[in-house]
Design a binder for these strands. Structure first.
Length: 268
DNA sequence: CTTTCAGCCTGACGGC
DNA sequence: TGCCGTCAGGCTGAAA
């Protein structure tokens, strides 16, 4: 389940093999993803050179000479570099062969991801909030946006218009570290506590990216998804278990259709 | 305007 | 053993 750290890890892994390479051949075996793969995408991008590979939120952007491809890994997607003649695994949907001989495979069992082509800006990228690790994401901004909002703070910080890239795992962890109950109304949290929360969001995401860096080679070589962050999680997936800080039992509630685990003792 | 919620999809898992 | 229901998750767009 790629969250922002996994997408960033993927970017760092594949970028050197794609940048400044010509796309020789693209094969789309399954075009039914979150949105249909842009019709004719393969023919359009073949022959173009990759100018750069970047990331915005959880989207990867492959910039080409006449436009760009927008790639999302959805819930279960992954990109890996393979040998040119590697066997196709179940759920390998798209392959991109580069001039160097490098081959990129897109694998996505649940098909929540996307591969889209556009000559201009992708509509998915308009209306996105700031990157969580940039200075544009600051507590003042978050505090101002939260005023008069009755929505619970957890779905609030997971809203891409507030800040991008904060998924269920890291939202839960950042709220725990901040001592804030996930179901507290966003508009009823003080500026001081938003300062803490903002800091913890940055902290938890950058720590995960750092750890992603250590499993970078494995990840790109395609030996399965990294499970490196699991033992560091204090609340996510631990409903009913004992809190790591006090001796209370962690509670599991639904917020905006998402499971939300917190410690009723430590979080208020 | 804000907020909620169904739907997309497959695999893993628990109950029987 | 296998069948069925439930859950997980990001994101959009329609409904309230």
């Amino acid at each position: 389940m790629p969250e922002l750290p996994e997408v960033e890890t993927t970017l760092r892994g594949i970028e050197p093999s794609l940048a400044n390479q010509k796309i020789d051949l693209v094969t789309v075996r399954q075009s039914s993803l979150r949105w249909p793969v842009t019709p004719g995408l393969a023919e359009i991008v073949q022959g173009q050179e990759v100018l750069a590979v970047t990331r915005r939120a959880k989207y990867l952007i492959v910039e080409l000479e006449y436009g760009s491809m927008l790639i999302h890994l959805g819930m279960s997607g992954s990109l890996r570099l393979t040998a040119r003649d590697a066997d196709w695994r179940k759920h390998d949907h798209i392959e991109m062969q580069l001039g160097s001989g490098a081959t990129l495979r897109y694998h996505d069992p649940r098909r929540f991801g996307c591969w889209l082509w556009s000559e201009g800006e992708h509509r998915q990228l308009t209306h996105l909030g700031p990157e969580p690790l940039s200075d544009d994401f600051c507590s003042d901004r978050l505090f101002q946006l939260s005023r008069n909002r009755k929505m619970a703070v957890k779905p609030f910080i997971m809203d891409n218009r507030m800040v991008v890239g904060v998924g269920n795992i890291y939202a839960s962890e950042a709220l725990f570290r901040s001592g804030i109950r996930p179901d507290r109304a966003a508009g009823r949290i003080s500026q001081k506590r938003y300062t803490m929360l903002t800091g913890h969001i940055k902290e938890v995401l950058s720590a995960a990216i750092e750890q992603g860096g250590t499993t970078l080679r494995d990840f790109v070589n395609g030996n399965g998804e990294p499970g490196y962050f699991q033992q560091k999680l204090a609340v996510y997936g631990r409903g009913g278990k004992v809190c790591t800080v006090c001796d209370g039992v962690l509670k599991d509630i639904k917020l905006g259709q998402r499971s939300s685990v917190f410690c009723p003792n430590c979080q208020h």
